[in-house]
């Protein structure tokens, strides 16, 4: 566990989380949530949890983003807050 890399990844994770809930365009918010998931995946590889990391990369970031985009295409894209 390298603590410099750990701190940088945690910083990016917090920035992505705050950006994902503050952007009004829902499609952009979902793409940023995908980036958040990939940063989480990098963090877990760095912590030594490789099995959790590749499950998160395929299931969390991959399928989750696809489901969100499909649902947003069927509903509204704009959000008021």
């Amino acid at each position: 566990m390298i603590w410099q890399l750990d701190l940088i990844l945690l910083l990016f994770i917090v920035i992505c989380a705050i950006a994902a809930i503050n952007i009004k365009d829902l499609m952009s918010a979902v793409i940023i949530l995908g980036a958040y998931s990939f940063f989480m995946c990098l963090l877990w590889t760095e912590m030594g949890a490789v099995d959790v990391a590749f499950t998160e990369a395929s299931v969390g970031a991959g399928i989750g983003t696809v489901l969100f985009i499909a649902a947003i295409n069927k509903t509204a894209r704009r959000s008021k807050d």
Binding site: I21, L26, A29, V30, L33, D81
Partner: peptide, 9 residues
């Protein structure tokens, strides 16, 4: 947040 997708995020 009031938007339901935002709640899900």
């Amino acid at each position: 947040k009031r938007n339901l997708v935002k709640k899900l995020i």
